[in-house]
Amino acid sequence: KEFRPGDKVVLPPYGVGVVAGIAQRSVSGVSRAYYQVDFPGSRSKAYVPVEAPHSVGLRKAL
């Protein structure tokens, strides 16, 4: 896996977040693995496909 729990990442347009782990989510009846990204200071979460994280701009924070 490219990202691990605890990694600081950037996800446009949300900003800097932390990978909380990998979650299985069902979309249109198909279960897939997603990185769960939490954003400190907020209750917001984002789910990014493990198979294509760069397709939505997910990258490691510098």
Rank of each mutant, 00 (worst) to 15 (best):
R4S: 11
A61E: 09
P49S: 07
S31G: 06
R32S: 11
K60F: 07
P12C: 14
Q36N: 03
S26F: 12
V50L: 07
A33L: 14
K45V: 15
L62Q: 13
V9C: 04
P40T: 06
V9H: 01
V37P: 02
G15A: 02
V50M: 05
E2Y: 10
V16S: 07
F3M: 04
G6A: 06
K60Y: 06
V9A: 00
G41V: 08
R4G: 08
L62E: 15
A20F: 06
P49E: 05
S31C: 14
D7N: 03
S26R: 13
S31M: 14
Q36H: 05
H54E: 15
D7S: 04
P53I: 09
A33M: 13
A23W: 09
Y14Q: 03
R43A: 13
K45M: 11
Y35A: 01
A61H: 12
E51L: 07
D38W: 14
E51R: 04
E51V: 07
L11F: 07
K1C: 15
Q36D: 06
G57K: 05
V30S: 07
H54Q: 10
Q24M: 14
I22S: 07
S42W: 10
V37R: 00
P13Q: 06
A20L: 10
V56N: 12
F39P: 00
P13Y: 08
Y34C: 07
S42F: 10
E51F: 06
G15S: 02
L11Q: 07
E2V: 11
V37A: 00
S42I: 11
L58N: 03
V16Y: 14
I22R: 02
D38L: 12
V18R: 08
V50K: 03
E2N: 09
E2S: 12
P49I: 04
P49G: 03
V16D: 07
V10Q: 05
L11C: 08
G41N: 12
V16Q: 11
G15E: 01
V56E: 08
A33V: 10
S31W: 13
H54Y: 07
P5D: 04
R59H: 15
L11G: 00
H54C: 13
R4E: 10
G6R: 02
A61V: 13
F3V: 03
V18I: 12
G29C: 04
P12V: 05
R43E: 12
A33K: 11
H54S: 10
K60H: 15
A46P: 00
V50A: 04
R32V: 11
H54I: 06
A52P: 04
V37K: 00
P40E: 10
L62C: 15
S28Q: 14
G29K: 03
I22H: 02
F39T: 00
P40G: 08
G15F: 04
H54F: 07
V37G: 01
D38R: 08
S31K: 12
V27H: 08
Q36T: 08
Y35F: 08
S44R: 14
Y47L: 07
S42K: 11
Q24H: 12
E2M: 10
E2T: 10
G29R: 04
V19R: 00
V48S: 01
A23L: 15
Y35M: 03
S42Q: 10
F3K: 01
S55E: 13
G41D: 13
R25P: 02
K60W: 05
V10D: 04
R43L: 13
V30Q: 09
G29F: 01
K8I: 15
P5C: 12
R4F: 12
P13N: 08
P5E: 10
Y47M: 07
K8H: 12
G21C: 13
F3Y: 06
G6L: 03
V18P: 00
G17A: 02
V16R: 09
A23D: 05
D7M: 06
S44I: 14
E51D: 14
V30F: 06
P5F: 07
L62I: 14
A46V: 13
V30E: 09
K45A: 12
V48P: 00
L11M: 08
A46Y: 08
G17K: 00
V50W: 04
V18N: 03
D7K: 00
D38H: 11
A23P: 03
L58G: 03
Q36Y: 07
G41W: 07
S42L: 12
G17N: 01
P13M: 08
R25Q: 07
R25N: 10
V9R: 00
V16A: 10
P13H: 10
V48W: 03
P40Q: 07
L62R: 10
S26L: 13
G17W: 00
R43G: 14
L62V: 15
K8S: 09
L58A: 04
S28C: 14
Y34D: 04
A61I: 15
V19Y: 03
P49L: 08
Y34Q: 02
V30H: 11
Q36E: 15
P49N: 04
V9K: 00
E51H: 06
R43K: 12
A52N: 14
A46C: 10
E2I: 12
G41F: 10
I22Y: 04
K60T: 07
R25A: 06
P53N: 05
Y34S: 00
L58C: 07
H54D: 14
A20C: 12
S31T: 14
P5T: 12
V16T: 09
V16F: 13
R25G: 09
Y34T: 00
Y34R: 01
V27E: 12
E51S: 09
L62G: 15
V48A: 06
P49W: 06
A61Q: 08
P5W: 04
P40W: 08
L58H: 03
A52Y: 08
V10Y: 14
Q24F: 13
G41M: 09
V16N: 08
S28D: 15
V18L: 06
S31E: 11
V30C: 10
K8D: 04
A46L: 08
H54K: 06
S31A: 10
A23S: 11
K45S: 15
D38P: 00
R43H: 13
G15Q: 02
S55R: 09
A20I: 13
G41Q: 11
Q24G: 04
A61G: 05
Y35C: 05
Q36C: 11
S26A: 08
R32N: 09
D38A: 11
G15I: 02
V30A: 06
R59D: 07
V19S: 02
S44K: 13
R59G: 07
D7P: 00
G29Q: 02
K8A: 11
Y14M: 15
P49V: 03
R25L: 14
R25W: 09
Y35R: 00
G41H: 13
S26P: 06
P49A: 06
V27K: 09
R59Y: 06
V18H: 05
R59P: 03
V10H: 08
V56W: 05
V16M: 12
A61C: 15
V30M: 07
F39V: 02
Q24R: 11
Y14C: 13
Y14F: 12
I22W: 01
G15V: 00
Q24K: 11
A20N: 08
S55H: 09
V9I: 05
Q24V: 14
R25M: 13
I22E: 02
V27T: 09
G57E: 05
D7Q: 06
L62P: 14
S28T: 07
V19A: 01
A46H: 10
Q36G: 01
P13C: 15
Y34P: 01
G6C: 05
I22Q: 03
S44N: 12
V9W: 01
A33I: 09
K8L: 15
Y14P: 01
A52V: 06
S55V: 11
G57Y: 03
S55N: 09
S26Q: 11
G57W: 02
Y35D: 03
Y14S: 01
R25D: 04
R4A: 12
S44L: 15
V27N: 07
S28I: 04
V10S: 06
V56R: 10
S55G: 07
Y34M: 05
K1T: 14
S42E: 08
V27C: 12
P53M: 06
Y47F: 12
V16G: 05
G15R: 04
Y34I: 02
S44H: 14
L11E: 01
V37W: 00
P40F: 12
P49R: 03
V10W: 13
K8R: 12
P13I: 06
A20R: 12
A33W: 14
P40V: 09
L11T: 01
V9P: 11
V10R: 05
V16P: 07
Y34V: 03
F39I: 03
G57S: 04
S42P: 07
R4H: 12
G29M: 02
A52C: 15
Y14K: 03
L62A: 14
S28V: 08
V18Q: 04
P13T: 06
K8V: 14
V16W: 10
H54N: 09
A33Q: 13
G6N: 03
V56C: 15
V50D: 00
P40M: 09
K60D: 12
G41C: 15
P53H: 07
Y47K: 01
S55Q: 09
V37C: 04
V56M: 09
F3T: 01
